[in-house]
Design a protein around this nucleic acid. Structure first.
Lengths: 205, 205
DNA sequence: CTCTGGCTATAACGCTCGTCATAGTCTAGC
DNA sequence: GCTAGACTATGACGAGCGTTATAGCCAGAG
């Protein structure tokens, strides 16, 4: 019997991403996740038989992929346009939630893995999400003339500073930190690309 | 009877800061905090009668003040020296804990406050800690010739990107992100100060 | 020595946790 | 209509939660 999965499953994953971004992973219970998605508790174990860690992993991948799609789409118009879209997306999430929600990938990243030797899959998914974003940004920077050595550093700086600024905004209940970071990052990228363009023109002349 | 508080109290606060930086606030129990500080559970309620939120607040203030002292000391030798000390401190914490510990101020910042109207004091303490660090950095930048408009933006960028990079390092179990951010931030500050120095010299001539 | 008061040990309160098992209910395909 | 299989309802398991209460320890003051 082929049934297109009911809307429940994706709704649970999306809701989990949202709730984890607000409360953190270990502080969020499966019962809350189910209630937040208006799904019965039993359904979560039906769709995610490996329990909480499986749901958390899928939630991180879901959020990571959504951001990746946004970057892929908006970076076509250049690194600054991509940066602006990236910033506006987070700004919208923080403001719409009245400073209660943030980035689920960050939330998972700052929780200690259990004492065992192997890492929780959700943490690995978080690392991959960050790396994907960095790669897209670095690629766009390089493609638009940034120094190939500085491009990955700039990409990491963008992701790290936006993630950090989101947390600072939540603590202060004020978008000032993200605005200041946005302003500086835009100027930074613009001068980087302008410098390279100037240098290229000089070499050509 | 004036008794200098036994070493227990500060040890509990310091241990709480460490454990909160690893696991997050809501995911850390008072019993774990007591055990981590090798103190009996009863003592935590003796020293901190308002319970978990009081202990968490003091832990955030404790960590915030420690960083503030470090910045105050090292920024005397200039913004780059202060930045280096700031980075090296976090690097030490992350590496020494094998990527398990991070920044307790960030950990508290990314947890949703309870639905009530007033904010938890620990969150307010986190906002104040971030703001203190930013002010010190911005002041040093201005004092060493940075553009007075750009100085606060740069300070926020430094704090935000370091906080974000710490989280990224923990997820990847790799210090690459912090190293890349460090390299870019140093260059950024150096050129900012150099540009202003050049401009000042020009104005003087 | 007694006694006071800072500190600790222990147990308990009602509650929620992650997870599992079991017994349903409903719908799609025959 | 009937049956199979996808989904849900319900309740339970041991464990841990934040917090409080009570009783006990033990150093220092008198």
């Amino acid at each position: 019997m082929v049934r297109s999965g009911p809307p429940s499953r994706e709704r649970i994953v999306a809701g989990a991403a949202d709730l984890i971004s607000r409360r953190g992973l270990n502080a969020t219970s499966i019962r809350e996740l189910a209630k937040h998605a208006q799904a019965p508790l039993g359904s979560t174990y039906h769709y995610f038989p490996d329990g909480k860690q499986q749901l958390a992993t899928e939630a991180v991948r879901y959020a990571g992929a959504a951001v990746e799609r946004l970057l892929r789409r908006e970076l076509d118009a250049g690194p600054v346009a991509g940066l602006r879209a990236f910033l506006e997306m987070w700004r919208g999430i923080v403001v719409a939630s009245d400073f209660r929600a943030g980035c689920p990938v960050l939330a998972v990243s700052v929780e200690e893995p259990p004492p065992g030797d192997e890492l929780p899959p959700a943490l690995i998914a978080a690392a991959e999400a960050f790396q994907d974003w960095e790669r897209l940004l670095a690629g766009s920077l390089r493609a638009h003339g940034a120094d190939p050595e500085r491009a990955p550093e700039l990409a990491t700086l963008v992701v790290a500073s936006v993630e950090g600024a989101i947390a600072m905004c939540r603590a202060r209940r004020d978008m000032g930190p993200l605005d200041r970071v946005a302003h500086r990052l835009e100027a930074l990228i613009e001068t980087e690309l302008a410098a390279q363009a100037r240098q290229a023109a000089q070499g050509r002349q």
